[in-house]
Simulated assay, not measured.
Amino acid sequence: MAVFTAVSLDDVSEWIKQFPLGKALAVRGIASGIENSNFFITTESGEHVLTIFENLSFEQLPFYLNLMRHLAERGVLVPAPVANDKGELIVPLHGKPAAIVSKLEGSSQMAPQPAHCAAVGAMLARMHLAARDFPLTQPNLRGLDWWNAVTPTVLPFLSDSNAHLLRAEMHFQESYATCEHYKRLARGPVHADLFRNNVMFVGERLAGFFDFYFAGCDTWLFDVAVTVNDWCIDLDTGVLDEARVRAMLDAYHAVRPFTAHEQASWQPMLRAAALRFWLSRLFDFYQPRAAEMLTPHDPTHFERILRERIATPAPRLF
Score class of each variant (00 low, 15 high):
residue 241 D to V: 12
residue 219 T to E: 07
residue 192 A to P: 05
residue 227 T to S: 15
residue 209 F to H: 01
residue 169 E to A: 10
residue 192 A to W: 10
residue 227 T to I: 02
residue 205 R to S: 13
residue 179 C to T: 02
residue 189 P to G: 01
residue 173 Q to A: 05
residue 248 M to C: 13
residue 223 D to A: 03
residue 177 A to N: 08
residue 186 A to F: 03
residue 191 H to I: 01
residue 233 I to G: 04
residue 243 A to F: 09
residue 225 A to Y: 04
residue 213 Y to K: 06
residue 200 M to W: 11
residue 219 T to G: 07
residue 171 H to D: 13
residue 166 L to G: 00
residue 195 F to L: 14
residue 219 T to W: 02
residue 236 D to F: 14
residue 200 M to S: 02
residue 167 R to W: 11
residue 254 A to G: 10
residue 234 D to M: 07
residue 168 A to S: 13
residue 255 V to A: 11
residue 242 E to H: 12
residue 177 A to C: 11
residue 231 W to R: 01
residue 174 E to I: 02
residue 201 F to L: 01
residue 169 E to I: 05
residue 233 I to Q: 06
residue 219 T to A: 14
residue 208 G to R: 08
residue 191 H to F: 05
residue 187 R to D: 07
residue 240 L to P: 14
residue 172 F to L: 11
residue 196 R to I: 01
residue 241 D to C: 13
residue 261 H to E: 11
residue 185 L to F: 07
residue 190 V to W: 00
residue 195 F to S: 05
residue 210 F to V: 06
residue 168 A to Q: 10
residue 186 A to N: 07
residue 259 T to H: 06
residue 256 R to K: 15
residue 187 R to K: 13
residue 202 V to S: 11
residue 230 D to P: 00
residue 213 Y to V: 08
residue 245 V to S: 14
residue 171 H to C: 08
residue 189 P to S: 08
residue 220 W to F: 12
residue 160 D to G: 15
residue 261 H to A: 13
residue 251 A to T: 10
residue 172 F to D: 02
residue 205 R to Q: 14
residue 217 C to T: 05
residue 255 V to T: 10
residue 257 P to I: 00
residue 178 T to C: 01
residue 258 F to S: 09
residue 238 G to V: 06
residue 166 L to P: 00
residue 193 D to Y: 04
residue 163 A to Q: 13
residue 172 F to K: 14
residue 222 F to T: 04
residue 250 D to V: 10
residue 248 M to R: 14
residue 212 F to T: 00
residue 232 C to A: 10
residue 182 Y to E: 04
residue 239 V to T: 14
residue 224 V to S: 02
residue 199 V to P: 02
residue 168 A to Y: 05
residue 192 A to H: 11
residue 158 L to G: 09
residue 169 E to Q: 10
residue 212 F to A: 07
residue 252 Y to N: 09
residue 190 V to T: 13
residue 200 M to K: 00
residue 246 R to K: 14
residue 158 L to W: 02
residue 227 T to W: 03
residue 199 V to T: 03
residue 246 R to M: 09
residue 252 Y to K: 08
residue 184 R to F: 08
residue 228 V to P: 06
residue 234 D to F: 01
residue 261 H to Q: 14
residue 210 F to W: 13
residue 158 L to M: 11
residue 235 L to F: 04
residue 166 L to M: 03
residue 180 E to Y: 11
residue 182 Y to H: 06
residue 178 T to E: 05
residue 182 Y to V: 13
residue 236 D to E: 13
residue 242 E to Y: 14
residue 211 D to L: 09
residue 176 Y to D: 03
residue 234 D to T: 12
residue 246 R to S: 15
residue 215 A to S: 15
residue 161 S to P: 00
residue 222 F to A: 06
residue 231 W to M: 12
residue 174 E to K: 13
residue 200 M to P: 00
residue 177 A to D: 07
residue 219 T to F: 09
residue 228 V to C: 02
residue 188 G to E: 10
residue 238 G to K: 12
residue 254 A to T: 07
residue 174 E to G: 12
residue 208 G to C: 09
residue 202 V to Y: 00
residue 221 L to F: 09
residue 215 A to D: 07
residue 226 V to P: 10
residue 169 E to H: 00
residue 185 L to V: 03
residue 161 S to E: 15
